[in-house]
Design a protein around this nucleic acid. Sequence first.
DNA 1: AATGAATGAGCATTCATTCAT
DNA 2: CATGAATGAATGCTCATTCAT
Lengths: 215, 215, 215, 215
Amino acid sequence: MVRHAIDASDKAARRQAILAAAGRLFLRAPDSLPSAAMIAAEAGLAKGTVYLYFRTKEEIFMALLHEQRAQQLDQVQRAFAPGDARSPREKVDAFLDDYVSHIARHPEVLKLDALGYSIIERNVEADFLLASKEAFLTAFGAAGAAVDAALSLPPGQGVRMLLHSHALTGGLWQALDYPEHCRELIARSALATSALDFAAELRAALGQYWRSLSL
Amino acid sequence: MVRHAIDASDKAARRQAILAAAGRLFLRAPDSLPSAAMIAAEAGLAKGTVYLYFRTKEEIFMALLHEQRAQQLDQVQRAFAPGDARSPREKVDAFLDDYVSHIARHPEVLKLDALGYSIIERNVEADFLLASKEAFLTAFGAAGAAVDAALSLPPGQGVRMLLHSHALTGGLWQALDYPEHCRELIARSALATSALDFAAELRAALGQYWRSLSL
Amino acid sequence: MVRHAIDASDKAARRQAILAAAGRLFLRAPDSLPSAAMIAAEAGLAKGTVYLYFRTKEEIFMALLHEQRAQQLDQVQRAFAPGDARSPREKVDAFLDDYVSHIARHPEVLKLDALGYSIIERNVEADFLLASKEAFLTAFGAAGAAVDAALSLPPGQGVRMLLHSHALTGGLWQALDYPEHCRELIARSALATSALDFAAELRAALGQYWRSLSL
Amino acid sequence: MVRHAIDASDKAARRQAILAAAGRLFLRAPDSLPSAAMIAAEAGLAKGTVYLYFRTKEEIFMALLHEQRAQQLDQVQRAFAPGDARSPREKVDAFLDDYVSHIARHPEVLKLDALGYSIIERNVEADFLLASKEAFLTAFGAAGAAVDAALSLPPGQGVRMLLHSHALTGGLWQALDYPEHCRELIARSALATSALDFAAELRAALGQYWRSLSL
DNA sequence: AATGAATGAGCATTCATTCAT
DNA sequence: CATGAATGAATGCTCATTCAT
């Protein structure tokens, strides 16, 4: 039997352990949400224990999604932090490079995001859902404001640019993430020239978009 | 008992009825694919009858998705048909108006697309899958070529623009399609000004994108 | 559409065609009863047509079983027909040789027999069942009497010998008919020396049995 | 909710309870394997619980069959245990009396055996299947050797006698196990004198067989 | 008589969640 | 707190049989 988590920090750590286990499993097979049994096993806990920390399986992935989004917004904040002597152009390029390479290395972010609104929300209590979303919207607004400030944009423009970038990222990934066995088919088609390299395609599209709007 | 579908046109009609029933149900609850039992009931048929027309449940939704995409590509072909005296600018504007309003009226297209290649494919025979995809890729390439011709673009540009537009559409919809009970929350947030009207947001973004690349 | 069977002989022929089709299919995969759809297809008829000639699927196989048994009993009658100058010993040996070689060439007889009492009877109307069994019991008694007469046995002995032989045949076959993938396992076991050759084993056991009782 | 089976003995008991329930149901309607739902209900458990103890429905019956066979072979070992002063004849008679009366009281053994390797095996994992068969073959060989020793038979003779006895038992039971509603019919037929009493018929046939070979 | 479209009961198995220990 | 045994709703698909044509 696992050590009892008595004080708050123990409990937070155990919660994190469950999240990490869920993330690992999802990364391994992102077609669907891993079962509660698998999450428990991966975390080295009993099935019942998981339900001491989360009310439903979906709440776990909702929390995971929330965490990932928070990290992405942190990245925005760092990229456009005040008191930075670089030119807007440099800031944007650096940000987009980071952003795209991070996405390319962690495609599970996109998978979770895609499942997000269609599957995960189903089995989550309203209070949890609203709290998560509220936190996200707040952080999202703050990140947009940071962009506005760094690039001298009119208020609201940054938020919209982040939104569009997110949309293009998700949509492009979805359109290009063909399963392995379709690759050959596509290679012979009209999409052949451009579409196979998601990261390059995304970087180019975002570069053009940000340049046209902000510089 | 339902009237027997004897000749080919009766059978095609019944197939369409099943597709329509499946589409209706999916639109009503796009969290997941409706059960085979529900589809049959919605179509006014017995469960077994559905399996006379489709081999698996997923094949139904694959067919639905295929149909919707074919319609969208037809729309492209019509919008950029040769022998059209309008200016490129007029063609693009007309196309985008049509496209966005069609999407706004038929959001199930996007919902199916979102599930699309991740869930539906699972239980579809390879022959059906490849035939569908091949047909789609062919039509996609043709539509891109029509765009190239109508707007005097270098070859391949049209395909890429369609792809990006599709991606932006899907991603934006995903980002903005909050469930009903979240609306109020968003209205009070930083997204308030822009984000609530998916159609307007999409139209603006696409307008800018196509203008910057084609005119 | 198939030619209509108008007179009685046409109908009997069609009935036989269905039986033959069922037999062929069962022979091909004797693990279970072929489906009604397969029988119809194999007979070149529509599904519904089969049900004009038999009330249930099981009735088909019941009729098939009945036919096979009638053939076996015919064989007995021929082997021990009156006015035969051979010695009892010769008659018995010749009969057993024929019997075993026939069984060895048509193991589906045994498969049907084995299914017979456990599965086939389930879905057969009482009238058909009793008529079949009565016919069989009558023929069985007659065959036994022929044995009695040919071998100068007390009345009833022949019936019992046929019964025991049938029992040993079915039981031995069942015990020795291991699926392919078990062969290797058995070859390494205590059964290795004797048990793998069903026909030889059966011939020896029956030879000893008949000799000890009849000669 | 049922008492939780915590320690190993509780769990073994629950497993046995499921086996017993399955056996009871099968005995009641040996046409086919009872459904998983029925087994659970008969055992007073929920459907899911059954699958905590067995991987598939067929595995239940495989285990049941294995258990019954093990018991029968134990009976052989006890009957022919070394250091027994009785004469071979006495040993054989005692064994056969026990054997036949046991069979007569537990006909489900035969019914399971009849279905045995044709239906049950279908849905059983290879590991379980091979382990069961290997255990059985080993025990079978050992029992045969015990017979050889007790009756001073040449090596391999005992195994063969057990095999033939098993075969005759199964075959005779199959031939004589008419469903209730056929009894009257048979009583009026040529089988009337002998065939209705399975146990007596079997005892006589086995007695003659063992005497002719071993004494 | 022949057809084959329509029917719908039947079933093994999974898995999120609960709760006795 | 932790456990893991128990639960039972949920579901795609088959196939014998019927019946409209």
